[in-house]
């Protein structure tokens, strides 16, 4: 464990808790893409199946349980409890165009052709594009609530911090996972224009409005 990975995990946890808190407090999931949350729940389920087979540490297991539980709790809030506030008309990104290519790529480009490894690879590829429906929704509505932009900032920062973690681990531990690194770069790059808007607007107290 290193400071980059720890702050990355905490940033990830913060993002997930901000989202749950926003929906619960405002009793509304307006501006939130349910489709992205479906993809995240798929990512965690596919990636954390090893939760019961190989124990890494208490921290690792506890975080995996929290991420899976929070992902499904968010889906419940969006599609059951507050479904009247779900923005069905704007949340229209075709996620099958993300799921199929990621599944195909995971079958072709992986470290080892076993069930767990292919599912892990699928989750890595899927996570790198899982935010697209959410960014698409924000671009369609042209704005995002401030709390939603904080959620996106924390979520985008987590994988950026993981990139630093991989640089650190490469030099100090000789750890190198090209699949995770390339997908992590793609994932972080997708947030760049959002990061720019967040830094130039939200930090200065203005609402996140995309230039029309």
């Amino acid at each position: 464990m290193n400071i980059f990975r720890l702050t990355g995990d905490l940033s990830h946890l913060l993002a997930i808790l901000i989202l749950l808190w926003k929906i619960w407090k405002t009793r509304s999931c307006s501006g939130i893409s349910g489709r992205s949350q479906i993809l995240f729940a798929t990512v965690y389920t596919a990636r954390y199946l090893d939760l019961f087979t190989n124990f890494v540490s208490v921290y690792n297991s506890v975080m995996k349980i929290i991420f899976i539980a929070a992902a499904f709790a968010t889906l419940y809030l969006i599609y059951v409890k507050f479904k009247a506030t779900y923005d069905r008309n704007h949340d229209t990104f075709r996620i099958e165009f993300l799921l199929a290519p990621c599944a195909l790529l995971a079958l072709i480009l992986n470290h080892e052709f076993t069930i767990l490894e292919v599912l892990w690879t699928f989750s890595i590829y899927l996570e790198s594009v899982a935010i697209l429906p959410q960014l698409f929704l924000v671009s369609k509505t042209g704005e995002a609530e401030t709390i939603t932009s904080h959620y996106l900032f924390a979520l985008g920062s987590y994988r950026a911090l993981y990139l630093l973690n991989w640089i650190y681990r490469y030099y100090f531990e000789g750890f190198f996972d090209l699949i995770a690194i390339v997908a992590g770069i793609v994932q972080t790059v997708l947030y760049c224009d959002f990061f720019y808007l967040y830094i130039t607007r939200v930090i200065k107290g203005r609402a996140l409005k995309l230039p029309a």
């Binding site: 890494v56 540490s57 975080m63 995996k64 470290h111």
Partner: peptide
């Protein structure tokens, strides 16, 4: 075959 990468990250 590549060295097995231990999956210790989230």
């Amino acid at each position: 075959p590549e060295t097995k990468i231990i999956k210790d990250e989230l």
